[in-house]
């Protein structure tokens, strides 16, 4: 790693001030950032510790919804009893992420801000488009892990699995800094066509402070599936989050989010439309799943993700219907 200064502020305001410095980056759990420093992908001159900032470490559940501090660890998201009752899908997604050690260290904010795991991006030796070069090496190279949608400019996928679940619940994200704001989490992700150099709409000197999810309607059924090839610690082949607003056996409205298949988390709008107003059964789920893969543009190495995605979407819809929460044992 390169050498850097270290600042440990106690308030968000102090953190913002400390971040307002050329070459400064925030460090939360360090799970992703330290990896990137060790691989010489980034070389900040200053790290600003945000892990212990006041007010960012709480989970608050009340009748309007849940407010999750950016410093809450994945382990706490997985274990919090109130959150498990109010929004089970979040804890479900969190409990399947990474490993026990990483879950104890990784924060919600860091998880949102983590950068792609594309092996060309992660290697100093490849000056890919995302790093200012002219080539996406995955296009003609080894694309097994890569995107099957929206992959023309850059084929890296956003690696967060928590995000898939949060998006299906209509989450919003709060950002502190010069341009303090609260926006829909869905708008927080940046497509390669908009800006190759970053994955989230967070400028230097800004800080994620909270994610809020509205209270789940009584008729909302949710399920989350992280599909892996290897059971112990594997990046997802695909992950899917489904939220169904049900009226008896009829689906009034569906929210289906697809992860690990595109540079940003993807709403399966065609699949959602296929379910709207429909009596849900196996055939309906399969029809919706088939709609979810329409328009997929797989690369030479990742065509297998398409049928896998289709299968997982169908299963997750049915799991939401059955109230079995999806995911894997």
């Amino acid at each position: 790693m390169n050498n850097f200064e270290w600042v440990q502020p106690e308030t968000v305001a102090d953190a913002i001030a400390a971040l307002d410095h050329a070459g400064a980056m925030p460090l939360a759990g360090g799970v992703d950032l330290l990896d990137r420093l060790k691989e010489h992908l980034e070389a900040p001159s200053r790290l600003v510790s945000v892990r212990k900032l006041a007010g960012l470490g709480e989970i608050a559940v009340d009748p309007t919804g849940a407010k999750l501090g950016a410093n809450v660890t994945l382990a706490r998201l997985a274990a919090d009893p109130a959150l498990r009752r109010s929004h089970p899908m979040i804890g479900d997604a969190a409990s399947h992420a990474a490993t026990p050690q990483l879950r104890a260290m990784a924060t919600l904010g860091g998880n949102l801000a983590q950068r792609p795991r594309c092996w060309y991006f992660r290697s100093e030796a490849f000056a890919c488009r995302k790093k200012g070069g002219t080539t996406c090496f995955a296009q003609d190279g080894d694309s097994e892990l890569h995107a099957i949608f929206g992959n023309q400019l850059c084929a890296a996928t956003h690696p967060s699995t928590i995000v898939t679940a949060l998006l299906a619940l209509g989450a919003r994200v709060s950002i502190a800094g010069k341009r303090a704001r609260e926006v829909e989490l869905a708008s927080f992700f940046v497509a390669p066509e908009t800006d190759l150099a970053r994955e989230i709409d967070l400028a230097p000197g800004e800080l994620i402070t909270h994610v809020t999810v509205p209270v789940m309607a009584a008729n909302l059924r949710t399920a989350y599936t992280k599909q892996v090839a290897k059971q112990s610690f594997d990046w997802p082949l695909v992950d899917v989050a489904v939220a169904l607003a049900m009226d008896g056996r009829t689906c009034r409205q569906a929210t289906i989010v697809l992860g690990a298949v595109a540079p940003t988390p993807r709403r399966a709008t065609e699949a959602e439309r296929a379910l709207a107003g429909v009596t849900l059964d196996v055939m309906a789920a399969e029809r919706a799943a088939h709609a979810a893969i329409a328009g997929a543009t797989p690369l030479a190495g990742n065509a297998h993700k398409v049928p896998i995605l289709e299968a997982v979407v169908a299963r997750t819809i049915l799991a939401a219907l059955a109230g079995t929460n999806g995911s894997q044992p």
């Binding site: 200064e5 270290w6 440990q8 502020p9 308030t11 305001a13 102090d14 001030a17």
Partner: peptide
């Protein structure tokens, strides 16, 4: 900005 009474210390490099 609401700076705190004591600015945080910078350590290193």
């Amino acid at each position: 900005a609401r700076a705190s009474a004591t600015s945080p210390r910078v350590s290193g490099p």
